[in-house]
Design a protein around this nucleic acid. Structure first.
Lengths: 194, 194
DNA sequence: ACTATCATATATCAATTCGATATAGTCAAT
DNA sequence: ATTGACTATATCGAATTGATATATGATAGT
């Protein structure tokens, strides 16, 4: 899924600026399973405007850069829904420096291994708290993304949020149950080697 | 972590060709938490050779392109271990078209929602089987990546593999418990709307 | 027998995307 | 007083992906 499609999806929840769209991918609704940076969002919005899939209204603000509030056109909405129907979703990809590094646990000091695991746990704990299945867009709910016009959270979003939480909890549980075992085993091996 | 570092890590397990390194990220040891394509691996190996971190021996093969078997130099090994100690691991990032699409479940036919969930489950089931914590590099164990010189699986690899499996299982469990509820809710909403 | 398709193996390249930076003002905190 | 954080758009070099080219053997389907 390219950034253009992601932007269309972001605008399905209502109008937004490029900056707000980035926030949806940084902190908000989509942050746990899609990424898009400003450097790709702004060009994408420009292209979408040229293609007539979005329009924007420029709001002047006192002593601040103009705000361009983007909105889907009917054509944009149709295009996005067609994309949903036609796209064969790409493989999921999970990228974790920490897990990659932990693969080399034997080659590094045990304190580092423990620190990496703790860091991994801390990040997942934070993520788990950030995701609230009843309220998919926790931080800054000014814009009503993730919920319907009437304010009800969307069932799809709840499902996805719940799944994310389940994954976090499984991760934390695994660490609670296996961290000490790994550290002991590593200590054993070091002792045997010397 | 850039591709150069990933290549050094891949070569920590012993010598390999560029093609074999790609397989480690495609099917093998690292496939579930790091990605690297041939288009980035070959340039990375060239650069690493220039920098003296790896060397290669060219093996001619009858009726096949030459094979360049790469190997870490001592300098390369030291550099990688230093990187492990110094690098602040980047945030994990998980990217899933399916979860993104499911966010818009209300906007699409229920059959598509169900198909997407089933696809998601199928992929995780496959992944779960592919990961064997006792044997981190399931497919094609010619090269001994993920295990020590003596053939014992490395504890770090086992830990990471076990974690991956736990996540897969949690995902599958969540789907078993929540898929029907989501579909029912969606059907309800459609009925109420019309 | 013929034809795909896949696997091995290296290499290149356009298109995409990231990450950093520039600009510019407000606001809170140290 | 000044550092850092937030809002907001925009650009650009660098990294990376994904596709393609080349060459051949093996395997499987029609």
């Amino acid at each position: 899924m390219d950034v253009r499609t992601l932007c269309l999806g972001a605008l399905m929840g209502g109008e937004a600026t490029g900056y707000e769209i980035r926030k949806m991918f940084e902190d908000g609704t989509f942050s746990h399973f899609q990424i898009a940076s400003l450097g790709s969002i702004y060009p994408a919005l420009t292209k979408l405007t040229q293609d007539g899939l979005v329009t924007f209204v420029e709001h002047e603000q006192e002593n601040r850069p103009d705000k361009k509030i983007y909105q889907l056109t009917q054509e944009g909405r149709r295009t996005f829904l067609r994309t949903l129907l036609q796209t064969r979703p790409a493989e999921d990809r999970y990228r974790s420096d920490i897990l990659f590094m932990l693969t080399f646990a034997e080659e590094m000091p045990i304190e580092l291994t423990e620190a990496l695991i703790d860091e991994f746990a801390a990040r997942h704990e934070m993520m788990s708290m950030q995701i609230d299945p009843e309220n998919p867009d926790k931080p800054a709910p000014q814009t009503s993304h993730g919920r319907d016009e009437d304010g009800t959270p969307k069932p799809g979003c709840c499902f996805v949020a719940g799944l994310g939480q389940a994954m976090c909890e499984a991760t934390l549980k695994f660490i609670r149950e296996n961290k000490q075992g790994l550290l002991d085993e590593l200590r054993n091996r070091k002792a045997n080697k010397s």
